[in-house]
Design a protein around this nucleic acid. Structure first.
Lengths: 215, 215
DNA sequence: CTCCTTGGGAAGTGTCACTATCCAAGCGTC
DNA sequence: GACGCTTGGATAGTGACACTTCCCAAGGAG
């Protein structure tokens, strides 16, 4: 398969594929001679993953490269590769520890983890990007004058835990390592828009059930 | 309160506030004379909401304006105002109905709504942005070769429905109309990062429980 | 009187994901 | 073997976006 065919089958323009090649998001094809390169199904698959991350997930190109670097790092064991890839994902601004709201949010969140008994998450709290982004979000809410304490978050956290259980159950149905890692990344990226859409749909449904249509 | 104080109390630079004023995201202050305007707590509150939408929620400025226009439209009844504001939020590209994956996703999603008994969501399916974005995401997943059918989505949808119930319960604890509408918008925007963070934290927790730390 | 602030507008900045253009070197076809 | 096409490689340009900078004339405070 040559560039033109790769482009056609993926729906991505050749110019964009060349851009991805330059950015290291896609491995170069097998060079046949100076002016021809051969791509295979693996390239197509990877290109689609990249597209999904960028277009559906809105992940910045630089982040995609980081994630893929971890995925392809054969020197690491599988769980680490997966974890590294997942952790490279969020683009979380370092919370400002001076800020009173940030400090309050910290307490709130660790109280939450305590209450839920999430021992592992607690142990990771100093380094986990998910923890940090939660702190940032809670602080933002507080700054607006809305209380969003552990007691309000706990039921949400319970539901999200069940969601995570579903995620991992689904992942485990995939036979090969490669597929599982890819699926986990998709689960973290494409799943989120799906969850978000389901959430909004559910809100519409529930709103209509409670208040009806005033249309 | 003058511009400088509004800036100081909100942590937003005067230049940016002026930009928001120009863009119609913030009502002009009460003009005292040609060179002085007076702002009140309401302005501060609105400014914080705008900031939250843009910074935490990543909502484009143009979309923020649309949302606020609906919120401030006193000619509409409350539920409509709320609905209009929520619907202005997502920036969903129109799905390409020609695409086979999009059509398949359509069937998938309406089968899901059928199975769940979400009658209201189903009735809204032709116009709801949430429905459309769900179709787009499911189609993207399919295009990558991953099956993500109604039977897999249903348990997620159930969990999201419970989340929506929590959302509305929380909203109803707010006494005033204004606050409820504002809270609902925040719930749609800031809540989502929080849910997302909780989801990822839960994934970390569950991954650690299942596979332990290989560190 | 002087300095500062005000609203207002125009123009510039930096980031990001492409996109367009150009190039010399092959390949396939006639 | 001429011609049109494609290739990898590189550079520069584009358009959207969210500011940010700069400048202005008018008013107010000390």
């Amino acid at each position: 398969m040559r560039l033109a065919e790769l482009s056609e089958r993926s729906g991505v323009s050749t110019a964009t594929i060349k851009y991805y090649l330059r950015e290291g998001l896609l491995a170069p094809g097998r060079q046949i001679n100076t002016t021809t390169a051969e791509y295979d199904e693996e390239h197509l698959r990877r290109l689609r993953l990249v597209r999904a991350m960028i277009q559906v997930g809105g992940v910045p190109v630089a982040t995609v490269r980081e994630v893929l670097d971890h995925v392809d790092d054969d020197s690491l064991p599988r769980t680490i590769r997966l974890g590294a890839a997942m952790w490279a994902l969020p683009q979380v601004p370092e919370p400002d520890e001076e800020d009173e709201f940030v400090r309050a949010a910290h307490h709130e969140v660790s109280a939450l983890l305590e209450q839920l008994g999430w021992e592992n998450a607690k142990r990771l709290s100093t380094i986990s990007p998910a923890y940090r982004s939660l702190v940032v979000s809670v602080a933002a809410f507080r700054r607006l004058g809305y209380g969003w304490g552990a007691e309000l978050m706990a039921p949400y956290a319970e539901l999200m835990h069940r969601t995570a259980v579903l995620d991992l159950d689904n992942m485990e149905t995939h036979p090969s390592e490669e597929e599982r890692i890819e699926f986990a990344i998709l689960g973290a990226i494409i799943n989120e828009p799906i969850l978000q859409s389901l959430h909004r749909l559910a809100q519409e449904e529930e709103t209509a059930r409670r208040y009806g249509f005033d249309e």
